[in-house]
């Protein structure tokens, strides 16, 4: 280790007193970092699962660094400002990748990054308390919202995130609205739903599993039965209820795609991709991700444009539902 240090030192001193030292042929020669856009939590641990397996493939360490801020945009800007040497990866979650650029809050779009493989998705659902007699099913729920415009209170976690857009879009489609109470920590919202302060809330499969004694789903935001089954067998999909909210496939879910700086050399990107594919295909990695409610999506880097492009279009059409909700509440 020390000899390696001396060797690098000697080479560095001889070769390049000022220029950067990017050698694709010996990549990776040191620890790699991955910027993570939220505070530490379950999604952070999932990122570590994948990067740890990638690190083993590459024979190096990949450290995940949590840099929350500006609704996730801070970590994206940080990666853009960093060197394009393949030593800084980005856990590209959909909200800062697609929604924030569409809202005009960024200078980048999803096309300003080079994709690696896609990682995982988390399907969302609307949940209510099991013992809440007002909402035996989806139809009565909408009926209630119609009779009490703007009176019901729900939470999507933060304001202006993907669950907020999806719920607002669904309610707008039904011609109803409610008040979104922001909670920076999703868990606090679920606690207040349990405690009876909130009328309904978004949820993810794992929190739902843990609160099955108290919660039931009204609708899961997906068209696929096996995705809805991540909640429970009774959970209904959008299709089951005959709903078209203009968001299909991945669009109404939370999902992440690993990214690097756009100018990263091709051979380095190729090395990373080989490692990430191998990591994702490992049965232990798949098993762990699924156990935690993060479903592996397995889209290859070539599919980035064809998958993300249409999602962008759908989100662009749906995001106005948030503004519509705010307008209704003002009246």
């Amino acid at each position: 280790m020390f000899t390696r240090f001396l060797k690098t030192a000697a080479v560095a001193a001889l070769l390049s007193p000022l220029g950067g030292l990017v050698h694709a042929d010996d990549y990776p020669s040191r620890n790699i970092e991955m910027m993570f856009p939220w505070g530490p939590g379950s999604a952070f641990a999932m990122a570590q699962i994948i990067t740890n397996a990638m690190g083993e493939e590459l024979d190096t360490n990949i450290t995940v660094v949590s840099t929350p801020g500006a609704a996730g945009v801070k970590s994206f800007n940080t990666v853009q400002d960093d060197d394009a040497d393949g030593y800084t990866l980005l856990d590209g979650w959909v909200a800062p990748l697609i929604l924030q650029p569409l809202a005009g809050n960024t200078e980048f779009t999803y096309q300003d990054f080079t994709p690696l493989w896609s990682a995982t998705r988390v399907p969302f659902a609307i949940v209510v308390r099991k013992d809440d007699e007002r909402f035996p099913d989806y139809a009565t729920f909408i009926e209630y919202l119609k009779e009490n415009p703007g009176k019901a209170r729900y939470s999507s976690g933060s304001i202006g995130n993907i669950p907020h857009m999806v719920i607002a879009k669904l309610l707008q489609t039904e011609g109803v609205y409610a008040r979104n109470i922001p909670y920076p920590q999703d868990g606090d919202a679920f606690k207040d739903l349990r405690g009876g302060l909130l009328d309904f809330s978004f949820n993810d499969p794992i929190t739902f599993q843990s609160n099955k004694d108290a919660f039931k789903t009204l609708v899961a935001f997906t068209n696929e039965d096996d995705v809805a089954a991540a909640y429970d067998d009774e959970t209904q999909t959008l299709d089951d209820l005959g709903l078209d909210i203009g968001l299909t496939g991945l669009a109404p879910s939370g999902w992440n795609w690993f990214l690097v700086h756009k100018d990263t050399p091709d051979d380095i990107v190729a090395t990373l991709n080989t490692a990430m594919e191998a990591a994702l295909l490992r049965p232990d990695v798949q098993e762990k991700l699924k156990a935690a409610g993060f479903l592996p999506t397995m889209y290859s880097p070539d599919q980035y444009e064809e998958i993300v492009g249409p999602i962008g279009d759908q989100i662009a059409a749906a995001k106005d539902a948030i503004a519509w909700e705010a307008e209704q509440l003002k009246k």
């Binding site: 530490p40 939590g41 379950s42 999604a43 952070f44 641990a45 868990g187």
Partner: peptide, 12 residues
Amino acid sequence: AATAVLLGALLL
């Protein structure tokens, strides 16, 4: 945050 990561570990 610390228990959030512990929770993630537990799920894993």
